[in-house]
Design a protein around this nucleic acid. Sequence first.
DNA 1: TCAATAACTCACCCGAAAGTGAGCAAACCT
DNA 2: AGGTTTGCTCACTTTCGGGTGAGTTATTGA
Lengths: 119, 119
Amino acid sequence: MSSQLKPGTSNACNITALSLACEVNDVLRDISPRWKMQVLHKVASGTKQFSTLKHAFPSLSDQILGKRLSELVNDKLVDKIILKEKAPKSIHYMITDKGLELLKIIDDLHKWGLKYFSA
Amino acid sequence: MSSQLKPGTSNACNITALSLACEVNDVLRDISPRWKMQVLHKVASGTKQFSTLKHAFPSLSDQILGKRLSELVNDKLVDKIILKEKAPKSIHYMITDKGLELLKIIDDLHKWGLKYFSA
DNA sequence: TCAATAACTCACCCGAAAGTGAGCAAACCT
DNA sequence: AGGTTTGCTCACTTTCGGGTGAGTTATTGA
């Protein structure tokens, strides 16, 4: 999906071994990039444009946001809807069913985290 | 954590959503290290010793296995039971309730991955 | 006596991911 | 004419964590 691993390196070999061992790893790799699930959640809650997402996460740079959005689109977790092609562009992001189902599980993870949070 | 919120803005209205996203981030960080959930799964399925875990994952090095196990112990996902302190040591790892509940969610992730698995 | 075993830890390297600086297109507003 | 907005991409540097080689302790079995 998104891995640019040089074939033959031990890293690449281990990734292959991992995937063979269990497909859950592919899922974990897909959801663990920093900010990714946050952005997905924001999109799901109605924040649809690049610029508004930018404001929602002041410490997230344009570059990373762009990267995460394109990953989300590639993963089919969100759809990219182009309303106006030429600048100033107008593009909306919409969560897919696949994305919504993932968010449900992410929410379970959140609840699990809260349940065992002791401090 | 996330603070510069002006009360009354739409941002402030979404504060619950934001904190959800933030805490999930910690959970994601904890579960995403390579091999970690596999090792947890193996421990849950009755493989309790360092050496047997080693054989279960031939391409996983001692060093990483040791690191993952100590992380799992720190996270209270498994308990470390020392049966014999001095070498050759005898140590058993046992999954905790917290670990079992996490594995259930990991299994949901797995099912989600399978459902949307396309080519 | 000496290898094997169990369960590690330490020091180091390197590739991958995160983050930064700059720039671009083209319409709109002043 | 020039500044602003929108939605990015490219090239680069820095940080991080996965992976490797070597070493440790002490007991048992050949």
